[in-house]
C-alpha cells in the first residue's frame, strides 16, 4: 500500500517526474512515430475557438481540426485533474502561488496579467517553433542545435521576466 500511496497520493520526487516525462519521448516515437510537443496543438485550438479558418497558416497546417494534438491537450488537463483528485487537493482556486499571495491585485488585473503572459507564450512558441516539451525536452534529448538555442533564450527571457515581476510587484523578496 505504501508504494500505491507514493505513486497516487504523495507528491513525487523530481527524478520520478523526469523519468516519466523523458520516457514519453521514445515511447511516442515507438507507438506513433511522433515527436513529443504541446504548443503546436494550440493552432488546433485557434481553429476551434477563433474565426481563423481563412488564415493561410491555419488552412494548410491544421487540416484536421480535432487532430491527435487536441486529444493530447485534453489528456494533460485530465492528468492534472486526476492528480488533484487523488491527492485530495481538488478545488477551484484563485490562488497562484506567491504572486496572488503577495501582490494582492484585484481579480481583473490578475486575469490581465496572466492573459498577457499567455499571449507571449503562444506567440513566442510559434516563432521559435516549439515550447518546453518540443524544444527543451524532445529537441535537446535528440541533440538538436535549434532546440538548444531556443532553450537558452527561453531561459534568458524567463530570468528577465521573473526578476522584473519580483522586484516590481512582489517587493523584491519573498
Amino acid at each position: 500500500m505504501f508504494i500505491l500511496r507514493s505513486i497516487f497520493v504523495e507528491p513525487w520526487p523530481f527524478w520520478a517526474g523526469g523519468v516519466i516525462i523523458g520516457l514519453l519521448v521514445p515511447l511516442l516515437y515507438y507507438y506513433f512515430n511522433t515527436a513529443l510537443g504541446v504548443s503546436t496543438g494550440y493552432g488546433n485550438l485557434v481553429k476551434i475557438f477563433l474565426p481563423a479558418k481563412n488564415l493561410q497558416w491555419i488552412k494548410t497546417k491544421y487540416v484536421e481540426t480535432f487532430s491527435w494534438r487536441v486529444y493530447f491537450i485534453i489528456g494533460i488537463i485530465l492528468g492534472g485533474l486526476l492528480s488533484s483528485i487523488l491527492s485530495g487537493n481538488l478545488g477551484i482556486t484563485t490562488e497562484m502561488g506567491r504572486f496572488t499571495a503577495i501582490a494582492q491585485w484585484p481579480g481583473v488585473l490578475n486575469a490581465v496579467f496572466f492573459f498577457a503572459g499567455g499571449i507571449l507564450l503562444g506567440l513566442g512558441a510559434r516563432i521559435a517553433g516549439g515550447c518546453t516539451s518540443g524544444h527543451s525536452i524532445h529537441g535537446i534529448a535528440n541533440l538538436h542545435i535549434s532546440s538548444i538555442l531556443a532553450t537558452i533564450f527561453f531561459i534568458i527571457g524567463g530570468i528577465i521576466a521573473a526578476n522584473i515581476v519580483r522586484s516590481l510587484f512582489l517587493g523584491g523578496a519573498w
Binding site: Y42, G117, C131, S133, A150, V165
Partner: peptide, 19 residues
C-alpha cells in the same frame, strides 16, 4: 529561435506556466 525564444521566455516568467 532567438526572438521567439525570448518572447516565449518572457511569457514563461510572467505567467509561471508553459503550454
Amino acid at each position: 529561435s532567438i526572438p521567439g525564444g525570448l518572447i516565449f521566455g518572457l511569457g514563461w516568467g510572467i505567467s509561471g506556466a508553459c503550454p
